[in-house]
């Protein structure tokens, strides 16, 4: 791993004067490793910092939110006849945001929308992060093996990747979700992982192909380092940055993908809320003017994806400065 040195931030003027006045002025050299350098570049990227804060806030809400909000997800509220401040009999089709229910209530069971959206965050994020992480591991293994060993193995693996990449992913996911009994969030997550690793496999393969012929790999081999150690200690650490970037961005696309699948009626069932299925349940109420019901889960998705995209953009610039756009 390359060690670069860099100056610490310049000392304040009075410090310099004090130093020059008394003894020798000393420049302290601090060496930063590549992660520290990347962190520096990342911090300078305003949008990326904003995106990370946004995303981490949403994660925090998902983790602690359900303990704080006043309504429990598993108790269904007493049905009301009237909405707060209204005498029109319309509570059954949902109430707009009010003091009691700051995001409004849903139609039908009149659930508190805030409770649903906050609880939905847990599953949506779990599916997004879980599927992306699994896919990244699968893709790294397949791509690494193909790129490092090459030959017929590479050929077979890459043809499989070609075939899977030319499948219309959405349809395949729908088919699997339908036949394996969607409704279960774990199945939905697995489906996204199993059909989401091909892009990363291609990326990792190309990285391994080029790193394999680097001088430091030759050097390692010359001193008798075995394949396993070369892969894990010499090549993989150099390939990690693009993998992290690709994985981050794929979290966003899985969250949107899950929403699509739920929207088309093949996703997780409503006893386990995700942003996707809260949204898809709201759609038949749109003609009634229930704008709040689709709006808030929709915004949750938009902000999460936006946060991740900003963050991924910044990560790419910070970790992998050569590959901008």
């Amino acid at each position: 791993m390359d060690q670069r040195s860099s100056l610490t931030p310049p000392p304040a003027l009075e410090e310099i004067e004090a130093a020059v006045g008394s003894t020798d002025y000393e420049v302290s050299l601090v060496s930063l490793n590549q992660w520290q350098l990347a962190w520096r570049r990342f911090k300078r990227h305003r949008l990326a910092v904003f995106g990370s804060i946004l995303f981490l806030t949403i994660c925090a809400i998902a983790v602690i939110g359900p303990f704080i909000i006043p309504f429990d997800f598993y108790t269904i509220p007493e049905p009301l006849k009237f909405c707060v401040g209204s005498t029109v009999l319309r509570a059954a089709s949902g109430c707009p945001p009010s003091i009691n229910h700051i995001l409004g209530t849903t139609g039908g069971l009149q659930r508190d929308l805030l409770t649903l959206v906050v609880n939905g965050a847990r599953l949506s994020l779990t599916i997004g992060i879980g599927a992306s992480a699994t896919a990244a591991i699968l893709g790294t293994i397949v791509g690494g093996v193909a790129g490092y060993f090459g030959g017929w193995l590479d050929n077979i693996l890459m043809r499989i990747v070609d075939v899977m990449l030319s499948l219309p992913l959405l349809f395949v996911i729908l088919v699997v979700a339908k036949f394996l009994g969607g409704g279960n969030w774990f199945v939905v997550m697995l489906v996204f992982a199993v059909f989401g690793w091909q892009g990363i496999a291609r990326l990792v393969r190309s990285l391994f192909l080029s790193l394999r012929s680097e001088v430091f790999v030759d050097a390692a081999r010359a001193v008798g380092v075995n394949d396993r150690r070369i892969i894990f200690r010499h090549i993989l650490p150099n390939a990690v940055s693009p993998i992290i970037v690709a994985m981050t961005l794929s979290v966003a696309s899985v969250i949107v993908g899950e929403a699509f699948v739920s929207f088309l009626g093949f996703g997780v069932d409503i006893t386990q809320p995700t942003w996707g299925n809260i949204l898809s349940n709201s759609l038949s109420f749109i003609p009634l003017g229930n704008w709040w019901w689709p709006l808030f889960p929709g915004l949750a998705i938009v902000f999460t994806v936006l946060g991740i995209n900003f963050m991924g953009d910044g990560l790419r610039d910070a970790l992998d400065p050569r590959s901008r756009d």
């Binding site: 949008l47 966003a252 949107v256 929403a259 699509f260 929207f263 949204l279 689709p294 929709g298 998705i301 938009v302 994806v305 936006l306 995209n309 900003f310 953009d313």
Partner: peptide, 10 residues
Amino acid sequence: LFGISIPIFV
């Protein structure tokens, strides 16, 4: 970036 982040059906 906003455009990329909005799901089509939303």
